[in-house]
Structure formats: C-alpha cells, structure tokens
Nucleic acid binder design. Structure first.
Lengths: 150, 150
DNA sequence: TCTATATAGATGCATTTGCATCGATCGTCA
DNA sequence: TGACGATCGATGCAAATGCATCTATATAGA
C-alpha cells in the first residue's frame, strides 16, 4: 500500500532533494570563496568543540556526523596534518584514540562560522519568519530516523 | 544585520542538512540493495524520459539537475556505455549533441522507480499527512534560488 | 586460560568528483 | 569576410569517496 508514493510526497521529496543540494552548494561556494575548508571540516570541528577538553572518539564522530567510518578516519588525518586536531591515546582501550580540537582548530572553526553563519542567515533566516522556521524544523524532525516523538 | 543567523534559522538549517543526507543515503542504499544504479542516473533518465523523442542537450541537463557540467559529461558517457542513452548529432549546432533515452534506459528507469518510489513513500509519504507534505513543499519552495513567488 | 567473535580504526584499490583547461564551433561586429 | 569573445562539451590530473579488507585490541564463552 505504501508502494507508490502520493503526488504530495513526491513533490515534497523532490523539493527537499533539490533545495538541500542547492543550499549546500551555496554554502560550500561561500567557504571556498573565502579560502576556507569545506563544510565537512566544520561539522567535525563543531562536534569536537562542543565536546570540549575530553574530546571524542572517532566512532563517536561517525555516529554524530553521519560520515562513514573510513571517511572520518581520513578526514581526521587531514585535520591532524593541518594541526586542527590532535590524536591522543586512550587509557582503557588500546585500539582507540581520543580526538581533541586544538587552538588552531578552534580558530579555524570560528573563521568558518563567520562565513557559514552568514550563509545560513541569508539562505534561510532571511527567507522565512521564525514561526515558519520552527514549522519547518518540526516537519523535518518527523522525517528523522528514528522518527522522534518531538 | 543578517550576519548572524537566528537560533530558529540554525535549527532549521541543521535539520535540513541532516535529514536530507539521511534520506538520500537510505534511498541510495535501497537502490544498491536491489542491484540498481545510483540516484544520479535516475535523475538524468527521468529528465530524458520527460523530454521524449526530442531528447535534451547536455547543457540542458546541467541546468535541470544541478550537476556540474563535467559531471554530466561523464555521467552521460557511462549511461551511453551501458546503452541507456544515445548521443545524436544536432543539426544546427556543430558543437552539440542531443541525448535521447533508449528503450533499455526507459526500462532501467522503470525498475529504479519501483524501488525509489517505495523509498519515497516509506521515508516521507508515510510520515506526514498530505497537508503537512504540502506545507513542507511550500516552505522549501521559499528557499529555492531564485526565490519563487509560489 | 584459551579460543572465538566483535569492535576500533587504517588502508589498498577502483570509482567518482572537482578543478582547470582544451579543442571546436557559434555568434557578433567591424 | 575575418577576427574575437562566448558557448558546448571533453579531458588530464589531483583529491575525495566507496568498498572490501586488514591489524590490533577487547570481550565473551568453553
């Protein structure tokens, strides 16, 4: 019975695909134009900054960011090469490591946010009222996996 | 003044990014599990099927699908290698070509839709009412570029 | 304790993407 | 007509991604 999507479902899906791609592209372009790293770096730096001194394990980053494991592994290698994060051995698990953001990483994140935040404000904040934005968040929240109760 | 995004804007943006990535991933996985080509192929085959016998020029595909020019160029090469599309010289423009979907391409699209459509129905259609879906489409429509009047 | 299985993270290899640029043709304007 | 800039589409090369697999450590069970 749910085999064939209804026209409203198709339309909403199509818009979601198109708009999200467009917005990502715009935000990426803005970062590039400012000579800053791509969005993926921001996502990771953001998570690490929120985690604070304790840092995070790579597998925790894969959970929170939706990036694949091997993707995080190599992304962290690049971030480390740039001095934005540091890898620390973790005491009670010889397999693992803890990733902590460095001062330089924090600074990079700050500079990225100046550009990224402006993109968000322009692309989304200026086009919908706060009530509409809340409505959008609520609808999107229902599409999450697992479906949250909200 | 629009430099710093409001909290509702940030939340809506974050959900949009996360949900859209999650949904794409789910849909891609479903196609892969059925041994079918990726979503990008569907997008192109869909546009070409809609265009009918007249076909489309590659640059028209880049406009409609948001894929970069070089991306379309290589995607078409793969589709042609698989016999899903054919490239025809175009009479009044020696630089260009017309891309037309083949019967095999139409058949592949049909088989992809059986899976893709089910994903849409499950991931979106079954989670929101038709009114909610329409509301979502309307809100997303306001985020398009250029901002449509709707 | 010893073995089997699961988990953390890295990596070799193939494919895809991004970027810059190229060759070819078109359209415009002198 | 001839020259010049713009447009169409392809491609070489570097970087990123996907996939499968690997090593190392941890955990569970006999």
């Amino acid at each position: 019975m749910t085999g064939i999507p209804s026209p409203p479902a198709i339309k909403a899906w199509a818009r979601l695909m198109r708009v999200s791609r467009q917005l990502v592209e715009r935000a990426e372009d803005a970062l590039k134009d400012s000579g800053l790293p791509p969005l993926a770096w921001y996502d990771v730096l953001h998570e690490l900054a929120e985690a604070g001194e304790g840092g995070l394990r790579p597998f925790q980053l894969t959970e929170r960011t939706l990036f694949a494991q091997y993707n995080i592994s190599r992304l962290l290698a690049r971030l480390e090469a740039d001095g934005l994060v540091e890898k620390l051995p973790v005491a009670d698990d010889g397999r693992g490591q803890t990733i902590r953001v460095t001062d330089k990483g924090r600074e990079t994140r700050r500079r990225m946010w100046a550009v990224y935040g402006r993109s968000i404000a322009e692309l989304v904040g200026s086009r919908l009222s706060n009530d509409e934005l809340d409505g959008l968040s609520a609808l999107l929240g229902r599409l999450r996996d697992p479906p949250a109760l909200e």
